[in-house]
Amino acid sequence: MSNNNGNNNGNKDSNNTGSNIGGKGKMVTITIDDKKYEVPEGTRLLWAALENGVYIPHLCGIEEEEKPSAGCRLCFVEIEGFLNPTTSCTQPVKEGMIVRTRSKRIDRMVKNAFELLLSNHRLNCGKCAANGSCELQKIAKERGLKLRVSRMRKLDIEAPVDDSPENFSYDPAKCVLCGRCVWVDHNVAKVGAIGLVRRGMGRKVAAFGETTLAESNCTQCGECVQACPVGALAMKK
């Protein structure tokens, strides 16, 4: 169900009718990086692009969500007629829309946002469960960014790893706070065990009262692990 990395392969898992309200309604023609695409009207740009094999970096995006949080600040695009770059996850497609996924401004914004994300992300790819399937690695590769923090001070999150569930664990030091696990917990698994708590530096995914997951009402269904774009929620080996 996750959109981690399967979206470039075409329509295999992205025929979610939920987002394309009105089902097979009107198609509109949009131009992304000088190529024309036919996409269903009302789809949001990010998903329209991904479905057609155009990669736009994204972490927090959830196709079915009606009000995207647009928090990761990675999916910026330039749209003709718009003064400023726009987050493609919030922008519905319109007939004749002309989009550029790369520009000087966008590359700079994405680079900054990416480095900020890395600045408190424990980089230990060699030993990380998500090595190879990590969305951060993918973004770095696609956009030619380095998986290294050079312009900022690195911040190490000290919160302990919660390895209380039988099959998986949560490491706050690797969490990018995209909220996808919380979304699937609430909307797919319909459990309501985890949420984003506190704020600022202390923000993390936790259960009620910040107990361990095993002590909470978590059913350990593992949906959140599937949704995690990085290695924060990972299956135990």
Binding site: H186, V191, G192, A193, I194, G195, L196, V197, R198, R199, A206, A207, F208, G209, S216, N217
Partner: peptide
């Protein structure tokens, strides 16, 4: 969910 109230409270 209880955790949503906790989330707001924190």
């Amino acid at each position: 969910p209880e955790v949503d109230v906790y989330s707001v409270g924190t």
